[in-house]
Design a binder for these strands. Structure first.
Lengths: 151, 151
DNA sequence: GTCAAATAGTTTGACGCTCAAAGCATAAAT
DNA sequence: ATTTATGCTTTGAGCGTCAAACTATTTGAC
C-alpha cells in the first residue's frame, strides 16, 4: 500500500514536470514564440466563447486581479487578447481573444488533446475507463481539500 | 472515445492547477512562509541523501545553472541549503540541505504522500492498480515525446 | 612542464510573474 | 448628495528565468 502511494506520487510529479516542459518547448518552436506557458494558460482561461470579466478570469487562474491586468497588458500589446468595456456597467472589463489569440487557443487545445489521445489509444477501453475514475477520485479529493483552505 | 479524451484532459488540467495551488497555500500557512513553491521544488531536487552537484540539480529541474545559482543564493541566505566545495575537483559545488531544509523536505514529502494516500484509500485495490497503469502509460508517452524535442 | 581548451559555477542585465497596497472610475446605498 | 462598495489599473518589491560575460580549476596537446 505504501509502495503504491510512492509510485503514484512519483508518476504524478514526473508527469507534471514533463507536461509543463513539453508545452513550453512546443510553444517556443511554434509560430507563437512570444507567448510563455503562463500566458498560454491565461489565453486558455479567457477561452473561445463567452466574454469573461477580469475578475472571473483571475479567479479561474488563482491569481490576483492586479497580476492579471499586467499580463493582459502584455497580451493586448502582442495582439492575442482584447478588452471590451461593458456598456451596462462601465467599471467592468470583458476579456476576449483576438483572431490571433483564437488561432493559438485552437493549436494548444489540439496539442493537449493529442497528448491524452495517444496515451488512451495504447490502453484498452476498460483500462482508460479506470484511469478516468482514478483521476476523478483524485480530482474530487483535491477540490475538497482546496475548499478547506482559507482564501 | 473523443469524449473520453476530453474528460481525461480536463481532469488532468484541473488536477495540475489544484495541486500547485494547494501546495503553495499550504506552504504559506506553515512555519515556512519564506519559501516559494519553486524553491520547494529545488529543495526537493537537492534531496535528503546524497550530495548533488549544481549541474545535476539544474538538469533535474530543467533550468539553467545560472538560474539555480541565484535560487541557491537565496536558499543559503534563508538557511535551507548549504554549499560544499568538492575536495577532489575544486570547481565542483555539492548542494545539501541544512537541518531546517531537511525538516521542510520531510513535511512537504508527507503532504504529497498523504494527498495520494487519501485518494487511493477511496479506491479498491484493483482500481488503484489500474490508475497506476494509466499514469505509467501517460508517463511513458511523455518521456518519449520529450526525447524527441530538441534541447 | 606549459599553455590552450574545456568544464563548473557565479554574476549581471533584462524581462516576466507575483502580490499587496494605493489609486481611479463607476455604481449602489443611504 | 454623499458615502460606501465594486471593478480594475498602477506601482514597488522580490523571485524566476535566460543568455552572455566572467572566474576558477582541470584536462589535453605539445
Amino acid at each position: 500500500m505504501d509502495q503504491r502511494v510512492n509510485e503514484v506520487n512519483e508518476y504524478l510529479v514526473s508527469i507534471f514536470n514533463d507536461v509543463l516542459m513539453i508545452e513550453e518547448r512546443t510553444l517556443q518552436m511554434s509560430q507563437f514564440k512570444d507567448v510563455s506557458i503562463k500566458e498560454m494558460h491565461t489565453i486558455d482561461a479567457i477561452g473561445m466563447y463567452q466574454e469573461h470579466t477580469t475578475s472571473e478570469v483571475a479567479k479561474k487562474l488563482g491569481i490576483t486581479v492586479g497580476t492579471l491586468t499586467v499580463s493582459v497588458n502584455n497580451l493586448v500589446r502582442k495582439d492575442y487578447v482584447k478588452r471590451v468595456r461593458s456598456e451596462i456597467d462601465r467599471r467592468v472589463v470583458k476579456l476576449a481573444l483576438t483572431n490571433r489569440g483564437r488561432l493559438l487557443y485552437r493549436v494548444h487545445d489540439k496539442f493537449h488533446r493529442d497528448m491524452v489521445k495517444e496515451t488512451i489509444n495504447e490502453m484498452g477501453e476498460k483500462e482508460s475507463e479506470v484511469l478516468m475514475l482514478g483521476l476523478k477520485n483524485l480530482h474530487r479529493f483535491l477540490e475538497r481539500t482546496k475548499g478547506q483552505l482559507p482564501d
